[in-house]
Nucleic acid binder design. Sequence first.
DNA 1: CTTATTATAGTCAAATTTGAATAGGGTAGC
DNA 2: GCTACCCTATTCAAATTTGACTATAATAAG
Lengths: 186, 186
Amino acid sequence: MSMKMVILGLLLERDMHPYEIKLVMKERTMDRMMKLQMGSLYYAVDKLVQERHIEAVEVIHSSDRPDKTIYRITDKGKALFEQLILQQIKKNDLVFHPLYTALAFSRHIDQSKVEKLLEERIRETEHQVNFAYQVYEEHIAIVPRSALHAMYGRYEHSLIELKWLKRLFADVSERKMSDIGTPLDL
Amino acid sequence: MSMKMVILGLLLERDMHPYEIKLVMKERTMDRMMKLQMGSLYYAVDKLVQERHIEAVEVIHSSDRPDKTIYRITDKGKALFEQLILQQIKKNDLVFHPLYTALAFSRHIDQSKVEKLLEERIRETEHQVNFAYQVYEEHIAIVPRSALHAMYGRYEHSLIELKWLKRLFADVSERKMSDIGTPLDL
DNA sequence: CTTATTATAGTCAAATTTGAATAGGGTAGC
DNA sequence: GCTACCCTATTCAAATTTGACTATAATAAG
């Protein structure tokens, strides 16, 4: 559903062809907020056309490249857009962090291997934290606050994750992952 | 892949049938760390059998209930388990938060509706924060630290989200989501 | 006493996602 | 001057997920 939401949201601004939608999404760092696979994008576009939420405006032929089909949002599409946004705010579904599960089981395997990987991951996350903050700073002057909130949110998220990884690393280093009965060192 | 990882991890402890795996996952609050749908569970089990990572031990017939097939992990499965865990720690893939995208577009729609929904969501998240902390506290004495880290991680995550939602609410209330050029109030 | 919900155990069709393939042109490095 | 990778734009088969359905029994609610 969030793919449909994005397509409608961008077509609200101007008519585009699918590949163009992808480019704009990247420009606005939306590829860091959701999964962006071309197969899913084209699939969502087809669905929206079938449902009459968007419609083709024009097909641009080219000798050497595939044809481009430009789409426009319909009134029905505008209504769906509002509904999707509100639904998304309301839903409050859990955010799944793939590492949680892996870590819950990690004590069954060679701790020195886990330790090494965690160390690398901490370094990467440190870069991500810095990068996320930079992205926020660089966009202050040029994007609306709504987008800024998303960017700062990503920064805070990665910061929390970094702290978490460091705690994990400490416990793995001391081979304490299987210990029971003591609270974490926070 | 994380479904396979969990199945292998639990079969490492003892032989089980799929429905039992689901029950144990719920017991250990794993249904809050990953999507848990029976269809996917049975699908993953079938795949693992095909790949010889697990094998059926026994089928229990019952007059009134469906048959239960009990599975056991193979040596090949144990190797895969280690590989999957390490891979997951290494991968460092982005965590997608569905609200980020919705919020980035929310300024296009009626702000009073957004405001109302956000208010509700803040209340819910406050409950989740408390609940997550309780889950952590209640498990200190009874689960290994590896699991505890996951639980405390969930708590911190929800706390950060709450702060984020409150900032959003403030901006939506003051109808500032479309403003450009000023840093967020942090 | 009746109705509703929950637990047990699993299956299946339909919806969706993934990942690779296509194919010509540009460009960066060696 | 060659080779290898990136950009444009889309398609498609195969893998996976979803959500509804089956059917019985036990417990809860009213």
